[in-house]
């Protein structure tokens, strides 16, 4: 079963994953999302790794969710897509990781700007519930998270992963 997790915990009744979300917001692939841009209702988009996130620029203000896909945990294109969305396009709403979302990649996803996670892997869900992410609080590079600049070299950052 897929669980939606954010840093505040498991999300109950996520509108995007309800089976009968007939009148709820729509989650569209890129091409349809760009067409949908004609009407004014807010919507969500799910991108594949080969999609150019920059195509979303004209519809950004009506997007309330962008889902980026990890077709395999080893396919890291969505990390760069996330960086471009957050840093280049200035996207501020929810950014969700979907596909193969596993524990050891989630700290990297958080750093590149993801803030919600669709997780199926049971041991991963348990560790998320326990708030025991396997990351490192010290970083050698700026990214798209809220990590603070620390004294010393300009490229260093720190953030408390598990609060």
């Amino acid at each position: 079963m897929t669980v939606i997790w954010t840093q505040t915990g498991i999300v109950e009744n996520d509108p995007w994953t309800q089976p009968s979300a007939e009148d709820g917001p729509k989650l569209l692939p890129l091409a349809e999302a760009l067409e949908h841009a004609q009407d004014n209702a807010p919507f969500g988009v799910v991108l594949q790794p080969a999609d150019d996130v920059r195509a979303l620029a004209p519809v950004l203000d009506r997007l309330i969710l962008v889902a980026l896909t990890f077709p395999a945990f080893s396919d890291g294109r969505a990390f760069s897509q996330a960086m471009l969305l957050r840093e280049r396009l200035g996207y501020k709403a929810e950014l969700r990781a979907v596909g193969t979302v596993l524990l050891d990649q989630i700290p990297l996803m958080l750093r590149t700007g993801f803030d919600s996670f669709a997780v199926e892997h049971a041991p991963t869900i348990q560790r998320l519930i326990d708030k025991r992410l396997p990351g490192i609080d010290l970083h050698y590079q700026p990214a798209a998270d809220a990590a603070a600049q620390t004294p010393g070299y300009s490229w260093r950052r720190t953030a408390l992963l598990n609060g």
């Binding site: 396919d75 990390f79 760069s80 990297l108 970083h139 490229w155």
Partner: peptide, 16 residues
């Protein structure tokens, strides 16, 4: 050395 530090556990470039 600067490249070594910057590339260590790089969040964007660990699954190239």
């Amino acid at each position: 050395e600067i490249l070594r530090q910057w590339s260590s556990v790089h969040p964007e470039f660990s699954y190239l």
